[in-house]
């Protein structure tokens, strides 16, 4: 009797541990196959882009690129203004009392400008674009899969990577850079407004901001922005293309949600990695 009880208890534990093991195994398998698939897609997209740039005769659709840039970027502008303006106004306000204790109240300009150009400009723009660009790209490509459009492209001997992925990746990358410059300026502008309210001389504020941002800070910010752009569009295109025909609108919804979640995780991760690299190479 007790023996049997012991047995069921044991088998329960074994199946529990085994279940967790299996779960971890499939999850990690999925994780690595996803990462691997993304690298392959990135590799192919890079090849197509290089061929398009350097081989005569290979076409790179300028029209398509322009269209995608408008699509990816323009709708995001109001939200970026809102977010960056708010952060630009809030951050100096929080820093001011402490700095003022040391008689350095004016230095909110320096703090704000460094935060904007090095970190919050690229980061917040990327977060906003992972919603605007990433989600819409994933939904669009996923829907194309379920409508057999991708299959139709392939049957016409058109490569979905050069036809769909490359224009979207280049557009997202370029728009990330453009919008980040814009976001940096808006955030500095926001700080400038707060500074005026707190009695910082506008001219001093401007001067301090300009000296705070050296060329290295400016460039590293933009490098980050470009990489975030690649990550967002790569994840969106990959998850969109991974939708299966029979999954229908369910699969498309899943791909869209996952794109936003994965993008934000990837952006934060890449941000940490690049900050360490830039720091190690003394680009601060």
């Amino acid at each position: 009797m007790a023996d049997a009880q012991e047995k069921t208890k044991q088998s329960w534990i074994i199946s529990f541990v085994g279940g967790i093991g299996a779960l971890v195994l499939t999850a990690s398998q999925q994780f690595f196959s996803t990462i691997g698939g993304m690298f392959l897609l990135l590799y192919e997209a890079a090849l197509v882009t290089l061929r398009g740039l350097f081989l005569p005769g290979a076409k790179i659709g300028r029209e398509a690129l322009w269209f995608q840039m408008i699509r990816v970027g323009v709708r995001a502008i109001p939200i970026i203004v809102l977010v960056e303006l708010a952060i630009g106004m809030i951050l100096p306000l929080q820093m001011f009392p402490k700095l003022n204790e040391f008689g350095q109240g004016d230095q909110i300009a320096t703090v704000n400008a460094i935060a904007a150009f090095r970190e919050l400009g690229p980061l917040m723009t990327a977060v906003v674009l992972s919603g605007f660009a990433g989600a819409s790209i994933a939904a669009e490509i996923g829907t194309m899969v379920t409508n057999e459009e991708i299959k139709a492209l392939q049957a016409m001997a058109l490569n979905p990577v050069s036809f769909l992925v490359v224009p979207r990746m280049l557009a997202t990358m370029l728009m990330m850079v453009v919008l980040t410059i814009f976001a940096d300026l808006v955030m500095v502008g926001g700080g400038w407004l707060t500074g005026m309210r707190l009695g910082v001389d506008p001219d001093v504020y401007y001067q301090l901001s300009v000296t705070a941002v050296d060329i290295a800070g400016f460039i590293t910010g933009l490098v980050k922005a470009a990489i975030f752009g690649v990550l967002i569009s790569l994840i969106a295109c990959y998850l969109g293309l991974s939708v299966k025909e029979w999954e229908g609108s369910n699969g498309v919804g899943q791909a869209t949600t996952n794109t936003v979640v994965y993008s934000i995780v990837a952006i934060i991760g890449a941000d940490a990695v690049f900050t360490v690299i830039f720091y190690a190479y003394g680009l601060f």
Partner: peptide, 17 residues
């Protein structure tokens, strides 16, 4: 090359939307 030598009409049309 082979794909350029055939055409297909899909059940759903499969036009690029």
């Amino acid at each position: 090359e082979t794909r350029m030598r055939f055409g297909i009409l899909f059940q759903s049309g499969a036009l690029i939307s």
